[in-house]
Amino acid sequence: MATVILVRHGRSSANTAGVLAGRTPGVHLDDTGVQQAGAVGDRLAGVRLAAAVTSPLERCRETAKEITSRQSAPLRASTEKQLSECDYGEWQGRPIKELAREKLWKTVQAQPSAVTFPGGESMRAMQDRAVAAVRRHDARVTAEHGDDAVWLAVSHGDLIKSILADALGSHLDLFQRIHVDPGSVSIIRYGETRPFVLGTNTHAGDLSWLTPPRKARNRRRGDAEVGGGAGPATQTGRS
């Protein structure tokens, strides 16, 4: 199967204000966020991206544009509403320090699978739709471009954490052990038997090793190699 690069949007004005933005319209990248998105684009400049999808929210679309603009061939990201931010309901737009005093906050930390945000969605529903969307796009990209294809998905912190938890075979209640910063890169390859997590929350390093040399293509196995294997042919600058 193809390889998906999961990118959390760069830092936003809501992040710096300490507010849970949720799906509030008009939340954009701040100057640091633009720089973070550009840095991801530079890391991926040597990777031939077969496709790009993004959450419809502005901060993700802006991040995707910074990344795709650095590709050698024109690439435009399509929007995927199933990768949109969690519907936090009545929590949306409120200060984080205020939410941390809510009784539900402790459940979000310790047992997120039991959480349904007041007037919003459950964290289980968030994970289900996010994982389904990524797997659906991954299957499409694989069918259209082959097993060596690499594609981009730009989304939000909790969604990416939930996708990584699923790929790692971890219960949703353990997903708070995973950290995903603004402007970070995580990488998953979905095999026939299991997903392979190639990286989480990375911030630096050339990623051109994700595009294999032509002579090495289509040689990947669906099984994990005993002993760990030799790794990609080119690892210079690998994070």
Rank of each mutant, 00 (worst) to 15 (best):
T142W: 06
A21W: 10
D138Y: 01
L6Y: 09
R8M: 02
V7M: 04
A132F: 06
E58L: 13
F117R: 12
D42Y: 02
T193D: 15
D223H: 12
E62D: 14
I163Q: 09
V226K: 11
V40P: 02
L20N: 00
Y190L: 09
L164S: 07
A37D: 04
G18L: 08
A17P: 00
K65Y: 05
M1A: 14
A110W: 00
E102C: 00
A51V: 00
A149Y: 11
L104G: 00
D173W: 10
T63N: 01
S184E: 08
R11Q: 15
R238M: 12
G119E: 01
G41E: 10
I160S: 04
K65H: 12
I187D: 04
Y190K: 01
R177T: 15
R194F: 15
T32P: 01
S184M: 10
L29Q: 00
G26P: 09
E192S: 12
D128I: 03
P212H: 04
G93R: 00
D181K: 05
D223M: 13
K81F: 12
P118G: 04
G146Q: 10
A21C: 09
I163K: 06
R94V: 03
T116F: 07
R94K: 14
D173M: 10
N201K: 10
D31R: 10
V19G: 01
E58I: 02
K81V: 14
T234N: 13
A149V: 11
A2R: 11
T193S: 15
K81D: 14
A110N: 11
S69Y: 03
L75D: 02
G18Q: 10
L172T: 01
I188V: 15
M1Q: 09
T3G: 02
G183T: 03
G199F: 05
L207M: 15
Q35Y: 02
M123L: 15
N218K: 14
M123G: 06
A45Q: 13
P182L: 08
P56F: 07
R135D: 01
T79E: 15
A153V: 08
R214C: 04
V4G: 01
S186P: 05
N218R: 13
A114W: 11
R11V: 11
Q111C: 12
G10E: 08
G229I: 03
H156F: 05
P25M: 09
R135M: 10
G229R: 00
K106L: 00
A51E: 03
D173A: 13
